[in-house]
Design a protein around this nucleic acid. Structure first.
Lengths: 235, 235
DNA sequence: CCAAAAGTGTTATGCTTACACCCATGC
DNA sequence: GCATGGGTGTAAGCATAACACTTTTGG
């Protein structure tokens, strides 16, 4: 095997990805069961080494696809964790990512473990196993970021199927923010939300039938992705 | 010289720090003039390689001290830049930091260049030279972060001397946000700002004498650092 | 007809904004 | 006494928050 030599020691660089989705009224995160030491058999965030000629974002997407078979996620960089002791194998700096997967994408895509991972599975964020490395801290940071983004931007979009009811949307908010919300105020606020003069939500015209009164279906308007940008404090 | 060998190629990891201060009504950033290629003679953000057994934050503080003689800054991680082509010497991933230095600290500390740097100097953020590498992008990102933090938290504190007038504080806001603000509304909002039930600003009882009517001096109350946390959108 | 979830308005309060004049000092 | 920056109040409009009942469907 060929080797690579440098004048100074270099840390290894990895990416780790926290993927959230929303299913059965629970906020879920995707974990893999490690096949190899350290922490063999333990649960961890998906991730792996960054190739030398590879973008960080690309590395995150590649590792996600390789280890869990997931594609088409919303992805953003979260934070870089570099405590010297965070990996018992030596110095490993990890660039943590934050990803959101909609329920229908999650259903479509078979989440299955790749080469280095035993299993891949979804866990309720509020009921987690022990995690390898400092992944608990990374996940905590990711939850914070998710809460913040949900309050101030329209990322709820990425956690839901293309069409959804207002009650489903409210459940996402309530679960992620870990609080309960007033139904009337929630609906008014959501329906009033505008992005560049265009409503964030639009009716599809369809309804979802259930055991009781059918609920109108909505979709996020195409332009409404990062809209509703953080409000300015000084006009 | 000893060498270090690995089975797979590893990127080098650096930190780069964007240090802001406020002086003579200008928002300034600290740059160093590079002595070595690439970009010898050009201006760049201070920074350098992370030691293998060193925290990322510690690396940022060490490089800042070594290259510019600056200590006692407010420091936070900004973003990690890892485009494969961002450094002509090869793959270098940089963890960018964001730092704020108060005017009196800036005055106390002789900003002077260290080993690898020709000069260190303060530049008006709105009137910059060409920067080496992707440092212009990093700086742009840092300015965004500063604007955001100034609007939503009390970081203005870190850019001013321990005691300051409300007009000086307003000038910081106006310069950083690149806008003008209503004096009465600004004062009311600042004086009303509370953190955990305690006023963010308190009068020192002293005044600053100038050419005209003396201005009351204020300080940030000790607890008022990250206070005035981002307001919740859902009660 | 009953259970269950969907859906809907009003009022009070507090915050945000826009706006113009007097005050204290040094020269 | 005058020039200069320091300092102050109010009214209108808007967004937020609290709160309970009717509607529609399936069984």
């Amino acid at each position: 095997m060929s080797t690579y030599t440098y004048d100074y020691p270099r840390p290894a660089v990895t990416v780790d990805i926290t993927v959230f989705t929303f299913h059965e009224n629970e906020l879920k995160v995707l974990l893999i069961q490690r096949k190899v030491d350290p922490f063999a058999g333990g649960w961890a965030l998906p991730g792996g080494f960054v190739d030398v000629d590879e973008n960080l974002d690309a590395a995150a997407l590649r590792e996600l696809a390789e280890e869990t078979n997931i594609k088409n996620v919303y992805l953003e960089q979260l934070y870089t964790f570099g405590q010297p002791e965070r990996d018992p194998r030596g110095r490993v700096i990890t660039v943590a990512y934050f990803a959101l997967l909609s329920l229908d994408e999650a259903a479509k895509q078979q989440v299955q473990a790749g080469d280095d991972a035993g299993h891949a599975d979804w866990f309720n964020v509020y009921d987690l196993p022990q995690l390898a490395f400092d992944h608990h801290a990374i996940l905590g940071y990711a939850v914070q970021r998710l809460r913040w983004k949900l309050e101030w931007t329209a990322v709820g979009f990425f956690l839901l199927p293309a069409e959804f009811t207002l009650t489903e949307l409210q459940q996402v908010y309530q679960t992620v923010l870990d609080t309960s919300l007033d139904k009337r105020n929630f609906r008014r606020k959501m329906l009033a939300a505008m992005s560049e003069g265009v409503s964030v939500l639009e009716e599809t015209g369809d309804v979802r039938k259930g055991d009781h009164r059918p609920a109108k279906l909505y979709r996020f308007s195409a332009k409404a992705i990062e809209l509703e940008q953080v409000r300015k404090r000084f006009p």
